[in-house]
């Protein structure tokens, strides 16, 4: 089975990337993914965002397993 993960983007990030939901090859870790995304979407440079793995906010570089869902979250502005 191919090692793929689900990538979701929200708010301003989704707008900049022109896409909200993608299936991508698993880069292995959140930090590698971040570097890949910055290379692929240069407009993300300088933007503040955090990542969540399977709906839990990441505090540090974390390994990603096949089939997991990783989300790119700009600063929250609910309420």
């Amino acid at each position: 089975m191919p090692d793929r993960i689900h990538l979701k983007a929200f708010g301003m990030l989704a707008e900049k990337m022109g896409t909200y939901s993608l299936e991508i090859e698993n880069p292995g870790s959140s930090e590698v993914l971040k570097q890949q995304l910055l290379a692929q979407f240069p407009e993300l440079k300088g933007m503040t965002f955090r990542m969540a793995l399977d709906r839990k906010l990441l505090q540090a570089d974390t390994d990603i397993s096949q089939g997991q869902e990783i989300a790119l979250l700009p600063p929250f502005s609910g309420g």
Binding site: A52, A71, L73, F76, G78, G79
Partner: peptide, 14 residues
Amino acid sequence: LVERIKTELPIWGK
């Protein structure tokens, strides 16, 4: 609750 909703829930306003 209001403070936590505003800072911790992944919601975005445009």
